[in-house]
Design a protein around this nucleic acid. Sequence first.
DNA 1: AATTGTAGTGTAAAAATAACACATAAAAAT
DNA 2: ATTTTTATGTGTTATTTTTACACTACAATT
Lengths: 247, 247
Amino acid sequence: MELPKDAVLADDKDINSQLNFYQKEDQVLLAVDCIIFGFDKTNLKILLIKRNFEPEKGKWSLIGGFLKKNENLDQAAIRVLRTLTGLSDIYMEQLYTYSKVDRDPGQRTISVAYFALIDVESHQFDGIQIDSARWFDLGEAPSLIFDHGKMIQKAISRLQRRAMTMPIGFELLPEKFTMRQLQNLYESILDKKLDKRNFINKINSLDVLIKLDEKDMTVSRKGAYLYVFDKEKYEKKVAEDGFSFKL
Amino acid sequence: MELPKDAVLADDKDINSQLNFYQKEDQVLLAVDCIIFGFDKTNLKILLIKRNFEPEKGKWSLIGGFLKKNENLDQAAIRVLRTLTGLSDIYMEQLYTYSKVDRDPGQRTISVAYFALIDVESHQFDGIQIDSARWFDLGEAPSLIFDHGKMIQKAISRLQRRAMTMPIGFELLPEKFTMRQLQNLYESILDKKLDKRNFINKINSLDVLIKLDEKDMTVSRKGAYLYVFDKEKYEKKVAEDGFSFKL
DNA sequence: AATTGTAGTGTAAAAATAACACATAAAAAT
DNA sequence: ATTTTTATGTGTTATTTTTACACTACAATT
């Protein structure tokens, strides 16, 4: 077998060695790209930026950045999100790693996609640090650079599945919300209409919301009761009864 | 802002630039590690190797290798699997990317885990190319290096979910199999007993198996009918009726 | 002919899901 | 003061899905 000059050789001769050489030239740049979902009490949205740097300057893209040597990917994703939006303590989850050789025409880059969930209204003035950042309604987003469109599609699928099996919808809502807002959220995520009574019955049967005395008067004359997600109760149920959130 | 000597700077001054510098020193090695599931008509197993190279020489681990510049991650995973087992045309799926800074004490490595499904008996002599490779029953596997144990746990969860929602179980069985073998497989994957009649009724209601005239006589005097998965029928149903495999 | 061990089969109860419509509250307009 | 307006809030029934459960059939071996 021929060895490149800078190969580092494992100390044995068998087939393991073939796989465990590495070469400086096989090092790659690892990026993180963040799909940021937001909800404004009516529509599910996604935050995009107009790139003011090459390649693909002027086109819309996800926010992203490069992994640094002294951090792991979760930390990189958190850093990227904070640098852009000023936000921390945001739900984030690793989605998938994209590695097509020519996905970025400029240089070989592998990108680990993350998605984040934020409540648009509570956070909208916290400081979106890039002038060119904009919320787009899902489905009205412009076409994106590289494989970012594919990333978003996968993120939506993941979000749909998560929403049905975990209480992550609340990450997209303000602390206090009405049943109608919660239903709007689920309809946006799942992209289909739900039956109001069935939805409320289902939510109530889970028994993890607290109904407040307070009402939201902004939408109807009658007003709608506000609810909060009872995280402690939820976690207690999970721990004690093997309860699992299934909508 | 201070720039490292070898930084490549984006061409604008705003916050984007902070994230879009990169430095040669931020390049990393990307590994792939493969969780190989096998089934031998009775038990779900996992293929491990005893490392004969440093670090952690002599300990058990998943098979793995490094991503090369001219391939994507799927290709790297396929290559690693083929090099070890001689197998190709195997179901593989990307699982998750592991990036803890000190996960590999030897060097900074980020690893993308894949899992593969193979039928042990059809393939057992195809050539496991490493003497030190061995099948372990799930749950009897030794403790593993680095974060490989965590990878396996995640792979099992993913496999459980996939098995319930996609026809991937058949990847673990020979082309012809009995209902009992199929049930054994699902019991192994889900790690729980299933009711025989309910299982068969459910499978039959999906209407994607072909019952052969042939019987497997190796287990009982009476013999058990063999079935094959009708992939064309399955795909046609998915395409035409929006059918989805749910067990 | 009797024994042995797995294969093969159906029904009824329970639970979950889906379908469905009207009265109520409170502000705004008259 | 009365009427209008608009979204809120609420329960029952039918349908579908899931679960529980036990005996006969077969074919080889003794």
